[in-house]
Simulated assay, not measured.
Amino acid sequence: MTRAVLGRIGSAALVVWATATIVFVALRATGDPLEAVMGGPGSQAGPEAQAAAQAAYGFDQPVIVQYLRQLWQVVTLQLGDSYSRKLPVADLLAANFPPTALLATLALLLAWVLALWGVLIAQTSRGRAGRLVRGALHGLETIASVTPQFFLGAILILVFATGLGLFPVTGTGAAGLVLPVITLAVPVAGYLAHVMHGSLAQADAAPFALTARARGASETRVALRHTIRHAALPALALSGWAYGSLLSGAVVVEALFARPGLGRLLLEASIGRDVPVVIGGVSVIALSYVVIMLVSDAIEIVVDPRLRSGSPSNARTASTAQEVTP
């Protein structure tokens, strides 16, 4: 456990360093951040004001010194002030991260509900009609997993907001969350269901499933008690990645639905080359990714008893005993 925790801490530090470095280099390559400080390319600031801003923000120092100072601010959580907004970066992140985290969390939960619902229908469908149902579900999962979020969001706006008037396009209430959450959740649900279907056939033909059926268990009970539980393990391992993709996908969704949040803040900061805001926001997303990976690992250990065993032989014994029990 200690080695695992230290490994995760090391991974988090490496991820934050890599993201901060990439963001710093990318934003500096697009232009001079002094423009963001002075109010944009159309600023009428004189030479004296520009020289004062360069000295105040350290732009007159070598680039390597600016880079190391930026990294030190990330390490010490002293992210400084926004170039364009003239506000502490920590305050901006604290105000904009909760709406994005709520949006991503609800989308991940909905994605799991949709994926498990589809897998349960496929597992309990038998005969010729069952093959047709499974084929249709497989097609829908494929389409959902490759549908761009901006396209899906635009379709949802046209149908449910503009056409039917059921949900608002913008808004911070519960109704305003419906369309953005669905936009984020559907592609992830398709991918999770596709991953689970890959291991569902193997679990369905395993001895524990055959034994449960021989003892008179219904297909629904076999699915809920045995096969879906095993088929969900690969998808659980990908939940951390899925949450990270939802946080990054929030950039598109928040811009499309005009929602406040970290994604919209990062988009505006990237356009304005506001380096402290972008580095701080990306670091928060990277740390959130590491935390959700830890949570998904813990859930996977709870679901799979083999991961709680001290040796491979004990793991197989525990798993077999648990699997054949109706």
Rank of each mutant, 00 (worst) to 15 (best):
V252W: 00
L137G: 10
G249M: 09
Y83L: 05
F257L: 11
A115T: 00
G7L: 09
V133T: 15
V63Q: 01
T320F: 07
L192W: 00
T100Y: 05
G280M: 01
A55K: 00
G31Y: 10
A242L: 13
V284N: 03
L137K: 09
S43H: 06
A52P: 04
A154R: 09
G249F: 05
E268L: 09
S311V: 05
L106N: 03
A217E: 04
L184F: 07
I271F: 12
R69A: 00
I301C: 11
Q73R: 15
A318G: 13
L116S: 01
Q202H: 11
A185P: 08
P260W: 09
A104P: 14
E219A: 13
H138D: 11
R225P: 04
E35T: 06
L68F: 03
G310N: 04
E254H: 12
W17T: 15
Y67R: 02
I301M: 13
L87N: 12
P33C: 08
A144M: 11
A26E: 07
H194R: 15
R28L: 06
Q44H: 07
S311C: 10
A107G: 10
F24L: 09
V25C: 08
L27T: 11
L106R: 11
D274T: 09
Q70S: 15
P41D: 07
D91F: 04
V295N: 13
T105Y: 00
S145P: 05
A232E: 05
I292R: 01
L294P: 02
T220W: 09
I301E: 13
S199R: 10
Y289T: 15
I279L: 03
R225T: 06
D304S: 10
A12V: 00
A13I: 10
P33H: 07
S84H: 12
L210I: 09
V324K: 12
V119Q: 07
L152D: 02
P47C: 05
G171S: 14
W72H: 14
A161E: 09
E254S: 13
S43I: 04
A206V: 12
T227V: 10
T142D: 04
D91G: 00
G198V: 07
I228R: 02
A51N: 10
L238V: 02
L140I: 15
V278H: 03
A206L: 08
L6M: 15
T162K: 11
V303Q: 08
T19K: 05
R28Q: 07
R213I: 00
R8W: 02
S288Q: 04
I292F: 15
G7N: 14
L192T: 04
A318C: 02
L140G: 13
V278S: 06
A231W: 02
M196E: 06
A223F: 04
Y191V: 12
T211D: 04
S145N: 02
G118W: 08
G31E: 06
A255K: 07
P148L: 14
V37F: 01
Q70Y: 00
A115K: 08
S218P: 11
L210N: 12
V290E: 10
E141P: 05
V23I: 14
V16E: 06
P326M: 06
